[in-house]
């Protein structure tokens, strides 16, 4: 089916088309879903190469279950977020003993370059702060505030209740605020 004709088709329907042999459906699903999975994995893992591996593995699992997918039971995007989250958790658990010593330190000697700070530095500071959060808090904060999911959607991805999501995001944000407190002025967000 031509690319243009598919652009308005739901993820569910695209997956069915893919299972039925449509070649273009996979490309469009990848363009829709893989960037989200990649962003989540990058923020959970703090490693671009590993995030790419997780994105590829998540999509591979989607291709494999395509023929068994039952439309309407779950959203494809929620399913991919959940699979990616689980893959990230597995990787974090495997590398935890190593990472205790390699958590990136927030650089404190940036005085003098405050005016020249670019957005990348701010994003880097955020990532460094995210890396210090417990996994579940990090996951909830990323899904809520960087991926823009609603609390019920996050609850489905994380397989927990909505109240638990609210608790995780609140605690995560508190920890983030504390981690970034010393950086705000330096990064140009201070208001005196």
């Amino acid at each position: 089916m031509p690319y243009d004709a598919l652009s308005a088709v739901s993820d569910d329907a695209l997956l069915v088309l893919y299972a039925n042999g449509d070649a273009e459906a996979a490309r469009l699903l990848t363009l829709r879903l893989a960037p989200r999975v990649l962003r989540l994995a990058a923020r959970m893992l703090g490693d671009a190469a590993e995030a790419e591996d997780v994105a590829q593995e998540t999509m591979l699992r989607l291709w494999r279950i395509a023929t068994e997918w039952r439309a309407g039971e779950a959203q494809v995007s929620t399913w991919t977020y959940r699979v990616a989250s689980n893959l990230c958790t597995d990787r974090l658990r495997r590398r935890r003993p190593v990472d205790l010593d390699s958590v990136p330190e927030v650089e404190d000697d940036r005085a003098g370059v405050v005016e020249g700070m670019i957005e990348a530095d701010r994003a880097q500071a955020l990532q460094a702060a995210l890396d210090t959060l417990p996994e579940r808090q990090r996951q909830a904060v990323v899904l809520r505030h960087l991926e823009g999911l609603s609390n019920p959607e996050i609850a489905e991805v994380m397989d927990i209740g909505v109240e638990a999501v609210e608790s995780l995001t609140a605690r995560g944000k508190r920890a983030l605020a504390a981690a970034l407190a010393g950086r705000r002025e330096e990064l140009g967000y201070g208001d005196g």
Binding site: R43, A123, L146
Partner: peptide
């Protein structure tokens, strides 16, 4: 800032 600097596919 984090959203603006998100990794791209």
């Amino acid at each position: 800032a984090g959203q603006a600097e998100a990794p791209a596919l």
